[in-house]
Amino acid sequence: MTQPAVSQQIRFLENHYQVALISSKGKKFSLTEEGRALQEYARTLYANSERILPLLHRIKNHTKPLIFGATLTIGEYTIPPILLKLFKEDPETNISMFVENTHILQKMLWEGKIDFALLEGHFNQNQFEYKELSNETFVGVCSPNNKIAATATSLEGLLDQNLILREPGSGTRDIFEHALYNQNLSINDFERKIEVGNMNAIKELCHENIGITFMYREAIKKEVSQGYLKEIPLQNFNVSHLFNFVYLKNCPDKTQIEYWFDRISNLRNT
């Protein structure tokens, strides 16, 4: 669209809704509070409209597929035992699971590509409906051969270590950066920063004593029990975070989506 056409459309919307949607200071333009609200309503309407066609085809074909996304820790460690139980109960269920970081999964929700997302990271709670799935403990991890494995220390006592962490946008990195911020620290305070997008690779590097990392206890309980990795005994580091079941507001199949929340919760607890 040309600039005059955009301006004309904005004026039409402002006249229709009887509010100002754009504010300007010199050559700078920004959305008003009403403009931001209209933007959120429009995004929700668009995302839900994208879901209508596949939902109607599900009804037509009498199918109830499970199409969802999960962040890495949940997708690799929390969900597989649940899916196994689900397959045993309903072997004909069609399941599609996308394992991505929090940022990408929120985008997939807006685009109508998934029904819901299981998120471990921070997300905009004003934009989505959500339900608590579990509350998970976040811990420091190192090699059993690392000198810090046997001695209690603080976050400040770890700054001479190489820090191995996930890419920006991942849930575990987001949680850790918030924990550091609360103690007036950042990832740049560590001796060296190593970014790796694969959790098994991160575990291997930690096992070989290349550096330390921070993960949910859920993700390393097997390796710790086998002596492959060691939890770092940290002082004044009591961090936990919710795993959330997240979906679009006012979605046309809310009843079906919440059915899957109940089903997943029950399977997790059995």
Rank of each mutant, 00 (worst) to 15 (best):
T2H: 12
Q3N: 13
P4G: 07
A5W: 02
V6W: 01
Q9C: 12
I10K: 02
L13R: 03
E14T: 04
E14F: 06
Y17N: 03
Y17T: 05
Y17V: 03
V19Y: 01
A20R: 06
A20F: 02
L21N: 02
I22M: 04
I22D: 04
S24E: 14
S24D: 08
K25L: 09
K28I: 03
K28P: 00
F29Q: 15
F29Y: 15
E33R: 14
R36A: 13
Y41L: 14
T44C: 05
T44G: 03
Y46F: 14
S49R: 12
E50C: 09
I52Q: 14
L53G: 15
L56K: 15
H57G: 11
K60F: 05
N61E: 15
P65K: 12
L66I: 08
T71W: 00
P80D: 06
L84M: 11
L86Y: 02
L86H: 02
L86E: 00
F87A: 05
F87P: 01
D90P: 07
T93M: 13
N94R: 14
V99D: 07
E100G: 03
E100Y: 06
T102F: 01
T102N: 09
K107M: 05
M108H: 07
M108V: 02
G112Q: 04
G112E: 05
G112Y: 09
K113T: 06
D115T: 13
L118G: 08
N124G: 07
F128W: 06
F128N: 04
Y130T: 04
E132S: 12
E132W: 07
S134K: 13
S134L: 14
G140S: 02
V141S: 06
N146R: 06
I148L: 07
A149N: 04
S154M: 00
S154Q: 01
E156V: 04
L158D: 06
L158A: 04
L159Y: 00
D160S: 03
Q161A: 08
Q161M: 08
L163H: 10
I164E: 04
R166M: 10
R166A: 14
P168A: 14
S170M: 07
S170Q: 05
S170F: 05
T172I: 13
D174V: 00
E177G: 05
N182G: 03
N182A: 07
N184P: 08
S186G: 04
F190E: 01
R192P: 04
I194P: 11
I194N: 06
N200D: 08
E208N: 06
N209T: 09
I210H: 14
I210R: 15
I212Q: 06
F214M: 12
F214H: 12
M215K: 11
Y216K: 10
A219Y: 01
K221L: 08
V224W: 09
L229T: 00
I232Q: 01
F237S: 03
F237P: 02
V239R: 01
S240E: 15
S240R: 10
V246A: 07
Y247M: 03
Y247H: 09
N250E: 15
K254N: 11
Q256I: 14
I257K: 15
E258Y: 11
E258F: 15
Y259D: 10
W260V: 07
W260T: 09
F261A: 11
S265L: 10
N266A: 13
N269D: 12
N269M: 12
